[in-house]
C-alpha cells in the first residue's frame, strides 16, 4: 500500500467527516470552518491526481475566496455565540430519507457499472503550458469561448451583487 493510497483514504475520511459536521453543526462559524477543511481536503485529492493547477484554484478560489466571503456574511448577520435550534423532525426525515435513498441508488449503480479497467491512451499532463494553450485556444480543444462567458458572468454577478446589496436610499431602510 503506497503512500498515495493512504493519503487518499485519509483525505476521503476528512471530506466525509467534515461534510457531515458542516451540515450538522449548530454553530455557524464552526460550520464555515468545517467547510474550509472539506475544501482543502478536496484540493489534496486533486494534488494526488497530479492536477496541480486545479488544486491551486481550489485552494485560492474556494478555500481562500468563497469561504472568506461566507465568513464575512456570517459576521454581518450573526452573533458569534448564536446557537441554532435543532432542525424540525419532518425536514430531518425528508433530508436524510432523500440522502440515504439517493446514496444507495447511486452507489449501487456505480458498483454494478462495468468501468473499463485499462485505458491505453497516452495521458496529457496538466502542465501550465497545456492548460494555458487550451484555455485561450480557439482551435480544436480550445476553451476561449467558455472562458469569455465565465468572465462576463462574473462581471454580471459582481454588478448584480452590488445592486442587490446596496442600501435602498429612497426607502430609508433601518440598517
Amino acid at each position: 500500500m503506497s503512500f498515495n493510497v493512504v493519503m487518499f483514504y485519509v483525505f476521503s475520511a476528512i471530506i466525509l467527516l467534515f461534510s457531515l459536521l458542516t451540515i450538522t453543526s449548530r454553530r455557524i462559524l464552526r460550520a464555515a470552518v468545517y467547510l474550509l477543511f472539506v475544501l482543502i481536503a478536496t484540493a489534496g485529492v486533486y494534488f494526488l491526481l497530479e492536477y496541480q493547477f486545479m488544486a491551486a484554484v481550489q485552494l485560492t478560489l474556494y478555500a481562500g475566496g468563497i469561504v472568506v466571503l461566507i465568513i464575512f456574511s456570517i459576521l454581518l448577520t450573526h452573533h458569534i455565540s448564536h446557537l441554532f435550534e435543532k432542525p424540525e423532525l419532518t425536514k430531518l426525515l425528508m433530508g436524510t430519507g432523500v440522502a440515504v435513498v439517493g446514496s444507495f441508488l447511486t452507489i449501487y449503480t456505480i458498483l454494478t457499472y462495468p468501468f473499463p479497467e485499462i485505458v491505453t491512451t497516452t495521458p496529457l499532463p496538466a502542465t501550465m503550458e497545456n492548460i494555458g494553450a487550451q484555455l485561450l485556444g480557439v482551435e480544436k480543444n480550445g476553451y476561449a469561448l467558455p472562458f469569455e462567458l465565465i468572465s462576463i458572468l462574473l462581471l454580471a454577478a459582481m454588478i448584480g451583487a452590488i445592486v442587490i446589496a446596496k442600501k435602498d436610499k429612497s426607502k430609508n431602510s433601518e440598517i
Binding site: K91, M94, G95, V98, V101, G102, L105
Partner: peptide
C-alpha cells in the same frame, strides 16, 4: 426546501 425535496425525489424516481 419543500420544493427542493420534491425536485430531488422526482429526479431520483426518474433516474430509477
Amino acid at each position: 426546501q419543500h420544493y427542493a425535496f420534491m425536485f430531488v425525489a422526482g429526479a431520483l424516481i426518474l433516474a430509477l
